[in-house]
């Protein structure tokens, strides 16, 4: 008996290690939460005192005026990215997780495809933006406009969506798939009705991050979307389109107090937009997951 007890470390030492680890994880969390709070509060504190609701209903005039055109422009771009990058990314993820044939050694297939996705994720956004400018705006004569902006932003965020879709699908319990298979469901039917349902939170999270990134991105848009004081038109090409980050960036670099107000307003709207997106998607996920194994 004594031999057994002696082979364990002392209780006090174990307690010390446990609390030390706890402190480490808390510090790491603080490292994430601190800056996030600081940024959000910084924006709110500077924007709210000068906030006028008319910002949302007035068009911009250079570095003054409202932000209506930019708000609508950003929303249009986000919807475009959701449609283009969402469908491409989710389909890519489904292919990598479900359809790519496994390799001979039993590991997951689709190696080259996955490598391509990773390479795309590694590109600096400004490089993508410049490539988009050269290939779409100049070579195809589309000019600064909505379509190149959506395409380049989509290219940028597709890897996030594909990766998160793939890993969400891989985490679906084999028992679901086997159960569906044994009932005589086709692979497609079981994917739609059983597998995707259980992978949904992961997929939605990927879409969200992608959308937030797209909404907050500046560099590729500077090269592709251009800027304008008017509302977005229905044409996909030849008409420049405004977006919020443009005003955050350009107006903050102006030497007038009025421009700074607009800049902080734009930042605040962006923050609220992203937070709303987060909350809404969490609600949607909670609703669809009320029958899941983890949600009892």
């Amino acid at each position: 008996m004594t031999i057994v007890t002696q082979s364990y470390p002392k209780t006090s030492w174990r307690r010390f290690k446990a609390s030390a680890f706890r402190v480490m994880t808390l510090l790491a969390l603080l490292f994430v939460v601190g800056p996030a709070l600081w940024l959000v509060l910084g924006v709110v504190v500077r924007a709210v005192p000068n906030w006028k609701w008319s910002v949302l209903t007035t068009l911009s005039q250079g570095t003054s005026g409202g932000l209506e055109n930019a708000v609508v422009g950003t929303l249009v771009i986000m919807v475009g990215v959701l449609l283009v990058a969402g469908s491409v990314g989710v389909l890519t993820g489904i292919h990598l997780a479900e359809l790519a044939p496994a390799r001979k050694n039993g590991k997951a297939g689709g190696g080259l495809f996955r490598l391509a996705v990773d390479v795309l994720a590694g590109f600096p956004s400004i490089v993508l933006g410049y490539a988009g400018y050269v290939a779409l705006c100049v070579a195809l004569h589309w000019g600064f406009s909505l379509l190149p902006a959506i395409l380049i932003l989509s290219l940028m965020v597709v890897p996030y969506i594909a990766k998160s879709t793939e890993s969400a699908l891989r985490q679906v319990p084999t028992a679901y798939r086997e159960g569906a298979e044994a009932l005589g469901m086709t692979a497609g039917y079981s994917l739609r009705k059983v597998v995707l349902k259980s992978a949904l939170p992961g997929i939605v999270t990927g879409l969200l991050i992608a959308l937030a990134v797209a909404g907050g991105e500046t560099a590729p848009l500077l090269y592709t979307a251009g800027a304008t004081n008017s509302l977005p038109s229905w044409s996909l090409v030849h008409h420049p389109i405004s977006y919020l980050t443009y005003y955050v960036w350009t107006d903050y670099n102006q030497p007038s107090a009025q421009a700074h107000v607009v800049s902080y307003d734009a930042a605040l709207i962006l923050v609220v937009l992203v937070l709303t997106l987060l909350v809404v998607s969490r609600l949607v996920v909670a609703r669809t997951q009320r029958h899941s194994e983890s949600f009892r």
């Binding site: 319990p173 086997e178 159960g179 044994a182 059983v194 349902k197 259980s198 997951q289």
Partner: peptide, 13 residues
Amino acid sequence: GMLFQRPNPFPMS
């Protein structure tokens, strides 16, 4: 048909 070792209801009602 088949019944498995561990109950495997689908994530639905």
